[in-house]
Design a protein around this nucleic acid. Structure first.
Lengths: 353, 353
DNA sequence: ATGCGTTTCGTGTACGTAAACAATTGTTTC
DNA sequence: GAAACAATTGTTTACGTACACGAAACGCAT
């Protein structure tokens, strides 16, 4: 017995109502040529009236093409193991989505070489993936890269730091300014009137430092906003070898023996910790990121606070966002600021990153 | 021309290698009867060797049955609008997954009536959904309910507060103890030696209060852990009408005129704020949750801090977890503690809940 | 009328799995 | 040794969409 022509699902139902074959419906859905204006209009009308929602599962299954994503983040370096975390987030997401026909090509650049960034970016553009996850350490180069992505119509998600006016599909990461602001708030609870604060920026690459300066800005803004007179001293350390750092810090502390709080604006805080431990200073030390070397110094009571923003989760969410967007056309939130977590010796064991 | 028998996908490939039909392979995959031990073993062997991963998309598509989920949370009440947020999270998740063959049945109970909880719970068990999202306000009743879920083999996810030994698929919500601990840390920055702290628990239902006591515990523990002598006063207010609350607070403040900080352990903080505003007290007020009435008092500088734990996101994630688990057998993390967000007059506008 | 090119539309198969149904073999019974 | 039945295995259709391919319909020139 033949099926009664009543209420089929999806494309078939539309085809029935319009009295055409599903192929014709398919053609207007993807507005491909080969349909007369007349029937095209009729079908379109029925589509909206029926409020047709394609079955995304069937769609993905029938579409033989696998979606290729590319990720571009710094490679691990001797300077910091920070980027292990985002990488593990990418790997986690990969495991989750690879059975849905998504493959991920991972590219890495040297955080001390803008050239390597551009090289890898070029490789990505050549390979022409469907979507890109990007940690834009080098602002100018990244702007350039993302402009070319836009030209090539490749959506990209940014993590770790934002490029506000670049029309990224999404930014997932810290609000750097707020992050510095919070540090200042923390500091303000820890000092007495007149205590000196030392802000330390450690970074070899100048471009990279835009990142750090945003945090510094937030920190300074807090004190301004709250009419707290603060004694802020700042050093920019442009080399990352310990000898140089030690030398710089020694000089700074010699000039200002009464520094009460040291705030290091990135994950290199362990290097400062090493100095402070050696110099047997009794200062409060605040820095960034859940890295083993930092945790070690926290356990030794050298580092007091670590601010952390779920780096693994950032990358994980970034990949998932691209996947949802590309595979299912699901909406993606333009900005997702990560929580600003404060870690101490007490609560770090519970931190799941 | 016939397909060469080389490297098919999935079940077909297994069938080819085992020299059986795909139906037989299907039978052992779902270990259904009707397969001789001999071929069953052979097929199983090939399955592991081939490292067969079923295509989840095809799986869901081929399975005609829609997955039904049930959610059980408090209904909105005049006492607090808190539960609007989780509900909106459920609705958001629903919109995302309904095209994947998931439907959600929403049940609500009266937060002041354990009976209503049990009634709704019974309705859910009758309807026998595939999975359940539960906010277990009434501990005993919820334990009973979840026990019956386990018997019926229905996985459930808890939000808002945990039932540790109940084998929930997942708990997504605050670590209540830590939440109180954090409040105490906050307080400790705000007071001077000898200042008095008032802890206010407002709740009509006794069972409900287990929740609040966990926070209180954390708060007290902080001071104990840090050898800080603290002057903690506590009042349990067991009615939620303003007249009664006002009366109780008036008496408390009369007895202790030197209270410096008031910590309200749940979202009812606005009621205390109303009192403090009226009495023109100059105390620091800390409470819970991003509710309009609370924000209003924060804008008037009556409430100083609100602790918040993304209630919408909790429910959203809860539903998504069930979906991933039931539709795709994807792993789910047993516990997901939400970040403990601190809101002030300054940063609340950026809080995306 | 025949042939040919275009436009317009329909048929059929595939994606990988689920499951109803059909067919085959093996076993028991009298 | 055939019938009756159980145990085992195979064939086919379906899920909803994509797309290659083929078929009609029409116009136009010869």
């Amino acid at each position: 017995m033949k099926k009664q022509p009543t209420e089929l699902k999806g494309v078939k139902e539309i085809a029935r109502r319009a009295n055409v074959s599903i192929a014709t419906v398919d053609r207007v859905l993807h507005n491909r040529p080969g349909v007369s204006k007349e029937t095209k209009d009729k079908i379109n009308e029925i589509i909206v009236e029926f409020n047709y929602q394609p079955n995304l599962l069937a769609k993905r299954l029938a579409s033989r093409k696998t979606i290729r994503l590319a990720t571009l983040i710094p490679k691990e370096s001797e300077e910091t193991t920070y980027w292990e975390a985002p990488l593990s987030g990418i790997v986690k997401a990969e495991a989750e989505v690879n059975q849905f026909g998504i493959i991920i090509e991972k590219y890495f650049y040297d955080q001390n070489s803008a050239l390597s960034f551009t090289e890898q970016a070029n490789l990505i553009l050549e390979s022409a993936p469907e979507g890109i996850l990007l940690a834009p350490s080098f602002v100018e180069e990244a702007v350039d890269f993302t402009n070319r992505c836009k030209e090539a119509n490749i959506p990209f998600v940014l993590i770790n730091s934002d490029l506000p006016d670049q029309d990224s599909l999404s930014y997932i990461g810290p609000e750097l300014y707020q992050s510095g602001y919070l540090a200042a708030q923390l500091i303000s609870y820890l000092i007495k009137e007149g205590d000196k604060i030392l802000i330390v920026n450690i970074s070899k690459e100048l471009h990279n430092r835009h990142h750090l300066h945003k945090k510094e800005e937030g920190t300074r803004a807090y004190f301004t906003d709250h009419h707290q007179k603060s004694n802020i001293i700042k050093v920019d350390i442009k080399q990352t070898d310990y000898a140089f750092i030690e030398q710089t810090l020694a000089k700074t502390f010699a000039d200002h023996p009464d520094i009460r709080v040291v705030f290091v604006t990135n994950s290199r805080v362990s290097k400062v910790a090493r100095y402070i431990e050696g110099a047997k200073k009794d200062t409060i030390l605040i820095g960034y990121d859940y890295l083993q070397e930092n945790i070690d110094y926290m356990n030794k009571d050298v580092i007091d606070f670590l601010i952390c923003q779920k780096p693994k989760d950032q990358a994980y969410r970034g990949v998932i966002s691209l996947y949802k967007y590309l595979a299912f056309s699901l909406p993606v939130e333009r900005v997702h600021f990560m929580p600003i977590d404060i870690l101490t010796k007490v609560n770090y064991p519970y931190y799941q990153n």
